[in-house]
């Protein structure tokens, strides 16, 4: 039995990624990953890599389809990175320095 959540956390270690990028690198469907990210997000293991500014809104931007920080299908997920808790968890299960 594999550990999909740990695999996602490992994939985010040191490298913020979007849902489609995670999907490509892990070979899993975005739909399958979405629920896992939701769990990790709610548990405080991952967070937004870029905080959206008050005056910067994707909705009015015509280039959003090309932007790495725009979550098209899943607006709740943009560019994600590990939280301190996520890093600690990852170090605990596979002790190695997280960049």
């Amino acid at each position: 039995m594999t550990s999909p959540l740990a695999t996602i956390l490992g994939s985010l270690a040191g490298t913020p990624r979007t849902l489609p990028e995670l999907s490509r690198s892990l070979g899993s469907s975005p739909q399958a990953l979405e629920g896992m990210l939701q769990t990790l997000y709610a548990g405080g293991y991952v967070q937004e890599a870029v905080q959206n500014q008050g005056d910067c809104s994707c909705s009015g931007c015509s280039l959003k389809s090309m932007c790495r920080n725009f979550g098209d299908e899943t607006p709740e997920f943009h560019l994600l990175r590990l939280t301190e808790r996520g890093e600690k968890y990852l170090n605990r299960i596979a002790p190695q320095p997280v960049p």
Partner: peptide, 12 residues
């Protein structure tokens, strides 16, 4: 994470 991990792994 252990509980969710087990469910996702089993679902997969």
């Amino acid at each position: 994470i252990e509980i969710a991990e087990a469910r996702y792994a089993r679902a997969g």
